[in-house]
Amino acid sequence: MAVETTTRAKLRWGLLDVLVVVFALIPVLWIASLSFKTPATLTDGNFIPREWTLDNYKTIFDTDQFVRALINSIGIALIATLIAVVLGAMAAYAISRLDFPGKKLLVGVSLLIAMFPQVSLVSPLFEIERQLKIFDTWPGLILPYITFALPLAIYTLSAFFKQIPWDLEKAAKMDGATQGQAFRRVIAPLAAPGLFTTAILVFIFCWNDFLFAITLTSTERARTVPVALSFFTGESQFEDPTGAICAAAVVITVPIILFVLFFQRRIVSGLTSGAVKG
């Protein structure tokens, strides 16, 4: 009887899962499907294209606009991620390990930044960046990205650091390690899953941002893909760019998938098991 209920429960859950996955994936698949359609069959309403074509992909890679935006996106997101994770790791380590005055305040302020509506900062940032002459440059986007990614990084990372037993660090010190060696050789390897998880989250945040990218850029110099997409036109003004936009949308999800797959393999759970008993 117990077996019966579990199989039935499994079935029910399985069905529910499929439903959710389908609900989430159909728009994505639809876009992928559109990107392979010819302009003529674009609006025929078929889920599977009747006529397959790669023209849309050729178009976007032929336009300098898109390639340039892709390079901007990758560069900006990677640099912002790297800096945010390194700074976040240091801050999170201090927060989880040290007792210093103003610790609560620091955590509170970083939480405040995360909650602050970004849209209200857009105009002041625009003014500031123009004054500082970093408007429409890479640093002009990297800086706000780091600002908003840091609270996220600090939060996830301090949760990870707190899981690592204090005793390991003490043991390393007793074994003759300096503070730096203890961090590099004992703590960092154990915090790696946390670092990778954080990197993924921050990268996705930077990659997907539209608001800052559209307000803080004006030319192809620093324009990222989400913004470039919105500026897409066809070959001529009268041509429908839908196919090309869809192809571009597919292309920009690829780096994210690769990024996640690459790091996910490193996110092994239970890395600290066996360090301490109970």
């Binding site: 390991l168 390393a172 074994d175 300096t178 004992v186 098991s273 360090a275 301490v276 008993k277």
Partner: peptide, 16 residues
């Protein structure tokens, strides 16, 4: 590290 003393912890504190 400069005291040249070894310590065994209650939790063992092995590097996992």
């Amino acid at each position: 590290r400069d005291r040249d003393i070894a310590m065994v912890f209650q939790s063992y504190a092995l590097y996992p």
